[in-house]
């Protein structure tokens, strides 16, 4: 059963992403409101993929990506960034820090579902 960690401060986006992830077979969504909370969840649960926002209180998404990529226990986990920052330089910055993919808001949920399935090796 793949565990999907959704790191997002907006309850609306958290609900929307969790709702979309119902289409990933047998998956379980674990929600986090910021980077610090996400790191706690990572320590307590086996996470298969992370969907993270950039602009969040306490710890932003980019800092979270950087910490995860520098931690041997978590560095292999795929990370997809979902953000309002749509400029090319923001994308490049996130990918350079170690994010695997970058999806600007407003998102097409079918695109996100496909991406997650691809990273988890689930055939459509």
């Amino acid at each position: 059963m793949p565990n999907i960690l959704v790191v997002e401060d907006s309850p609306t986006m958290r609900q929307l992403i969790s709702f979309a992830m119902r289409r990933v077979p047998n998956s379980r969504v674990i929600e986090s409101t910021d980077g610090v909370d996400a790191l706690k969840k990572l320590s307590n649960e086996k996470i298969d993929i992370i969907l993270a926002d950039i602009n969040m209180p306490v710890m932003d998404g980019l800092k979270l990506v950087s910490l995860i990529r520098n931690n041997d226990a978590f560095k292999e986990i795929p990370i997809i960034i979902i953000t309002t920052e749509g400029a090319e330089e923001d994308r490049k910055r996130a990918l350079a820090l170690g994010a695997d993919d970058y999806l600007p808001k407003p998102i097409q949920t079918q695109q996100l579902v496909k991406m997650v399935k691809d990273y988890l090796g689930i055939k459509a």
Partner: peptide
């Protein structure tokens, strides 16, 4: 559904305004 659910999830005026802003940013762009 998510937008509608969130809009009617509270009776706190400030919170409702915050949810409207969130919907506009995240779902409309």
């Amino acid at each position: 559904y998510v937008a509608s659910y969130q809009l009617h999830s509270t009776l706190d005026y400030e919170e409702v305004l915050k949810i409207v802003l969130e919907i506009i940013i995240n779902l409309i762009g």
